[in-house]
């Protein structure tokens, strides 16, 4: 699914990620964990095209066999062509727009093609109406899954925090990704919301979309991950199933060594 090979990212003199190689397999939940400052978010931003890596390659392979190199791809193409969606640690919804509009914006490229790139639809021509109806139905499907159908016409910014998190995931899913990257999805959620999130993420995985997540909440990570990559100071120190990683002395050392503030 996703292969990161010899990835290095430097900011000035600081090496945030150092020669990192790992894979996220199709149909699995892969978690990247590590103490604060380990370089998790940097890896994430490289994969989703917000940073250009200093060196190394990132390759994604789709279910239909097509392959894309992401490290030199323009930011928006990573989502539209590479089929990689992401969420943000500090939620980035279109707060002034309604919940439904948020989900429609996510289907921009598909809907845009249906409008004949604007001109036709302004004149009311073409099959845009049907396309928009399909878009709304897709939005309804995801809203049902995250339990927000009745809030569809409210401004996204007016939702409670937990609902905003779920909406951001639903929005990301509306681009029909092959890989969904989640930046600390459980941050700030209470146990009940956290459990609902686990179910949602496992459901997404079972629907055929692979997941890559960064998470601090070990409970979430251990329960839903199929595969864990542990980083410390920009390097990979462990890689394996939850059980293997939990038993790895290097991981224990890294966490206990910085136990107080991690």
């Amino acid at each position: 699914m996703l292969s990161v090979t010899n990835l290095t990212m430097r900011f000035g003199g600081l090496t945030a990620v150092d020669d990192l190689t790992f894979q996220a397999r199709a149909g699995e939940v892969t978690a990247v964990i590590g103490p604060n400052g380990a370089g998790k978010t940097t890896v994430f931003n490289c994969v989703t095209g917000f940073y250009r890596p200093s060196s190394g390659t990132i390759e994604v392979a789709h279910a239909d066999g097509s392959r894309f190199r992401l490290e030199r791809m323009a930011g928006h193409l990573i989502a539209s062509r590479g089929k990689i969606a992401r969420t943000f640690q500090n939620i980035r919804l279109f707060a002034g727009m309604t919940v439904l509009e948020n989900l429609l914006v996510a289907q921009h490229n598909a809907l845009m093609a249906a409008t004949g790139f604007g001109v036709m639809a302004v004149l009311g021509l073409g099959g845009y109406r049907a396309a928009e109806q399909a878009g709304i139905e897709k939005a309804r499907y995801w809203l049902e899954r995250i339990g927000l159908v009745d809030r569809a016409n409210d401004p996204a910014g007016s939702l409670p925090y937990g609902a905003q998190r779920r909406l951001e995931i639903a929005r990301a899913m509306c681009i029909d990704p092959e890989l969904l990257c989640l930046d600390e999805p459980a941050a700030g959620l209470n146990p009940r919301e956290s459990e609902a999130l686990n179910q949602l993420l496992l459901g997404i995985r079972d629907g055929g979309c692979s997941l890559l997540l960064i998470e601090h909440d070990m409970g979430v990570v251990m329960r839903i991950s199929d595969h864990i990559v542990v980083l410390d100071r920009g390097r990979k120190i462990s890689d394996g199933t939850p059980a293997e990683v939990r038993a790895d002395p290097a991981v224990i050392a890294a966490y206990l060594g910085e136990g107080e503030d991690a």
């Binding site: 917000f50 928006h76 989502a79 919804l93 279109f94 727009m97 509009e101 914006v105 302004v122």
Partner: peptide, 29 residues
């Protein structure tokens, strides 16, 4: 008014709200 109700107009408004999120959704900013 017409454009506002179309994907293009919606993308404009989304851009005003959050450019980075737009990029993450595959919109050519």
């Amino acid at each position: 008014l017409r454009l506002r109700r179309l994907p293009l107009g919606r993308a404009w408004e989304a851009l005003r709200e959050d450019e980075i999120a737009c990029r993450s959704l595959g919109i050519n900013v």
